[in-house]
């Protein structure tokens, strides 16, 4: 049972300059085939110049984020036949500098994470490096941040965010979510430092709860919730 589905793929070569174009490919599709399988089929059989980034093929590494039919998704996490479309448009993620075809430069995401100090902050760094005891957490303490540790940094939320699209300086859903993940961790001592970092024009206040980040997250992380909770913390001061 093989169906033929048309792939409309965004192509962009930096050396050509200007805007990219869409090119169409016909792909034979079997049950269980993912968008990534389709793209690899195109690369192997139809057009070897197509660039696509991927690694694990099982929604663990977060490399293959693309926009499929105008919604962000992991190419390896979306089955072609489940979309129930004859024409599938594959575009690179928004809000990132484009490198080639479907490959984007994720640098803004990581730069903003670094600016928000998304790591464990402890006063006693010596103890942090050479711990003398265990730091146990209760189930409740774990639940406060566990959901946000599921993030694989695929950057789909950053691409879906309407505010990042219009105001590129905004920290974006993923970095703010990660800041809250550490803020909510009972072992972290960065509390006031973190709320001060996000209390600026391009910080939490630019989130308007459009929820697109949580709608596209392939791991159910819910960055929108984390940002609202971080904002509550910042409002308390």
């Amino acid at each position: 049972m093989v169906e033929r589905v048309k792939f409309r793929v965004f192509r962009y070569r930096p050396e050509d300059g200007g805007r990219g174009i869409y090119r169409e490919y016909e792909v034979p599709v079997k049950k269980g085939m993912t968008i990534l399988d389709g793209l690899i089929y195109i690369k192997e059989n139809l057009d070897p110049t197509l660039s696509v980034r991927y690694s694990c093929r099982m929604a663990i590494c977060g490399s293959c984020g693309v926009r499929v039919n105008a919604i962000e998704t992991l190419a390896c996490h979306t089955q072609i036949l489940e979309l129930r479309r004859r024409l599938i448009t594959v575009e690179p993620m928004r809000n990132y500098p484009l490198i080639k075809d479907l490959v984007t430069d994720m640098a803004p995401l990581f730069r903003k994470q670094k600016a928000l100090m998304t790591w464990l902050i402890r006063q006693d760094t010596e103890e942090q490096e050479n711990p003398t005891r265990q730091y146990l957490q209760s189930e409740e303490e774990l639940e406060r941040y566990l959901q946000f540790t599921y993030c694989i940094q695929c950057g789909l939320c950053y691409s879906a965010c309407p505010v990042v699209s219009t105001f590129p300086d905004f920290y974006g859903p993923q970095p703010l979510m990660k800041a809250y993940r550490y803020y909510a961790d009972s072992r972290d001592e960065g509390g006031v430092v973190r709320t001060r970092l996000v209390d600026r024009f391009e910080g939490v206040w630019r989130c308007h709860f459009a929820g697109s980040c949580s709608a596209v997250c392939p791991k159910g992380v819910d960055p929108a919730l984390a940002i609202q909770l971080l904002r509550r913390a910042a409002l308390k001061g």
Binding site: H208, A210, G211, A215
Partner: peptide, 9 residues
């Protein structure tokens, strides 16, 4: 196609 919250925005 992002859903209700985006419409609210």
């Amino acid at each position: 196609r992002y859903g209700l919250e985006r419409w609210s925005y």
